[in-house]
Amino acid sequence: MRAVSGERKEKFADRLLNTREAAHLLNVSTRTLQRMRSEHRIGYVVLRGKCRYRQSEIDRLLADCTIVEDAATPTELKRNHTLRTGGSKPKGRRT
């Protein structure tokens, strides 16, 4: 069995995923993933007319959406609250 060098292992960790694979890892539909692209919530690459997603981008998105259970600082508590309530930014509603 061959050892994988650090550089090659890093490239493997940042492999490109197709839409179906990325949606599966995020546990969302392909349509939701398309919506996330349109809202600039996830970065992507276009190769030969097909969208691809870097593994590191999927990992970043999951980390950004992870609630810290043992939040100790006010910043962590605020972040958890924002994640649990769906965000603190007011929506542009017409009255």
Rank of each mutant, 00 (worst) to 15 (best):
R37H: 09
R8S: 04
C65H: 12
Y44L: 04
K78E: 12
R15H: 08
E69C: 04
R2M: 13
G87I: 09
I67N: 01
P74K: 05
C51I: 00
V45Y: 07
R35C: 10
Q55S: 15
A63P: 00
N18A: 07
L77N: 05
R31K: 13
R60G: 10
R35W: 06
T19W: 00
L47M: 14
R84N: 10
L61P: 03
R79H: 11
L62R: 08
E21H: 09
E21T: 08
P90W: 13
C65P: 00
Y44V: 01
C51A: 14
S5I: 11
L61R: 03
K50D: 07
R8Q: 09
V68Q: 08
L26Q: 09
K78Q: 12
R20T: 12
T82F: 01
E10H: 09
T82G: 05
L26T: 09
R31D: 10
E7W: 03
L33I: 03
V45I: 14
N27F: 10
T73V: 07
E21Y: 06
G6E: 15
G86E: 11
I58D: 03
L47H: 15
K50R: 15
L17D: 02
K89C: 10
T82I: 14
Y53G: 00
D59C: 05
R52A: 11
Y44E: 06
L77T: 02
R8G: 00
T82L: 12
R20E: 11
T66E: 09
L47E: 15
Y53V: 00
T82K: 09
L25G: 00
C65F: 04
E10P: 02
C65Y: 05
G92E: 08
A22C: 14
C65E: 13
T32D: 09
P74L: 13
L25T: 00
L62G: 00
A71R: 01
G6F: 12
E69L: 11
A22I: 06
H40L: 08
R41T: 07
L26F: 12
E76Y: 02
R41E: 14
T19I: 01
T75G: 03
R8E: 11
T19C: 06
K78H: 05
K50L: 08
L17N: 02
V45F: 05
D70E: 13
K89V: 11
I42K: 06
L16E: 04
G87V: 07
R15A: 08
V45C: 04
A63M: 07
L61S: 03
S5Q: 14
K78T: 09
V4H: 11
